[in-house]
Design a protein around this nucleic acid. Structure first.
Lengths: 139, 139
DNA sequence: GCTTAGTTGCAAGTCATTTGCAGATGGACA
DNA sequence: TGTCCATCTGCAAATGACTTGCAACTAAGC
C-alpha cells in the first residue's frame, strides 16, 4: 500500500468518528504499508518499531474497532490466530501455501456469481463469505 | 447418519489402528448419529448421556485424533469454537445463517472446477479448501 | 485553554483447547 | 484364557489468543 492509501485510511478513520491518537496513527501506518496479512503480534512488532511503548492490548482493541468500521478485514486461516489487512477496495479470496504459510490473493467474478446463484436457489441472500484454498506448488 | 454409517466409522477407526475403547465408541456413535455440526461441548453433552463419566479432555483428544485420520472434519466458523462432523463421503461447502447459527450444506461441482482451474493458473495444486457463505433469509 | 468522551497502559481475567502424569484397558500374542 | 504394554483416559494444571476493569491520559470540539 502507498502513502496515499495510508492518508485515505486516516481520512476514513476520522469520518468514522474515531480519534486519531498517536498509537492509532502508528497502527494505521503499519496497516497501510503492509501488503501481507500480519497477525496481531506481528502488527505490534511493526508498530513498536515506529513508536515504542504501544501496548499489545491497544493493537487488539484498535484492530477490532477498525474491523467494526470496515476499515480493515479480519481473516482466520488455519493457524489459530486472526490476521488482518487494510480493507481492500474490492473483495478477494486467498490461496494459503501450506508449505510456506504464504498468502496469495485472487479474485474470480465467475465464482462470486455462482455463489450468488446457489444462495438464491436456497432462499438465502449472502451477507459475506470466505473462500480459503490451501495449496502447494505444482509437482 | 444411520447405524450402518456408525459401523463404518468404527470399522475405519480400527483400520486406522485406533483402539476402540468405551469412550471412543460412545464418541463415534454420537458423531455418526449427528447430522448437524456440534462443537466439542455439545458433543461432550451428547456423549455423557450415553455413557457418563467421560471427560471433556477425552472428547477433545478423540476428535483431534479422528480428524488427523480423516474420520471427521473440523470446521471453524465465525463463532470462535471448532465444530465437527463425521467425514462426509463427498466434499461440500456451508451456508451459515447469521441470524440463527444454522448450518446448511451445499455442493457445486462448477465452483470446485473453477477453483481447480484458477489454482492451476497460479501454479498451485489444491490441498484442501473451505468455502463458508454467511447468509440471511431473502427479504 | 477547558472539558470530556474516547483512548491507552497495565494487570488480571476469559475461554477454548492442550498437556503432564499416574492409573486404566484394549487387543495382540502366548 | 491370562499376560503385557502401548494406547487411552481422567483429572487438574497449563497454555495461548484475546478481552476487560480501571485509573490516567489526550484529541478535538467549544
Amino acid at each position: 500500500m502507498t502513502r496515499s492509501e495510508s492518508r485515505n485510511l486516516m481520512q476514513r478513520c476520522r469520518e468514522a468518528g474515531l480519534r486519531l491518537t498517536g498509537p492509532r496513527q502508528a497502527i494505521l501506518k503499519v496497516l497501510a504499508e503492509s501488503d501481507d496479512h500480519p497477525d496481531v503480534e506481528e502488527l505490534h512488532r511493526r508498530v513498536v518499531e515506529i513508536e515504542p511503548g504501544i501496548n499489545l492490548a491497544t493493537v487488539y482493541r484498535t484492530v477490532n474497532t477498525l474491523a467494526e468500521h470496515r476499515l480493515v478485514e479480519k481473516h482466520s486461516f488455519a493457524d489459530g490466530r486472526a490476521r488482518y489487512e487494510a480493507a481492500p477496495p474490492t473483495h478477494h479470496d486467498h490461496f494459503i501455501n501450506v508449505e510456506t504459510g504464504e498468502v496469495v490473493e485472487f479474485r474470480s467474478d465467475e465464482i462470486e456469481r455462482l455463489q450468488q446463484k446457489i444462495a438464491q436457489e436456497f432462499g438465502f441472500q449472502i451477507v459475506s463469505h470466505r473462500l480459503d484454498i490451501y495449496v502447494k506448488p505444482q509437482d
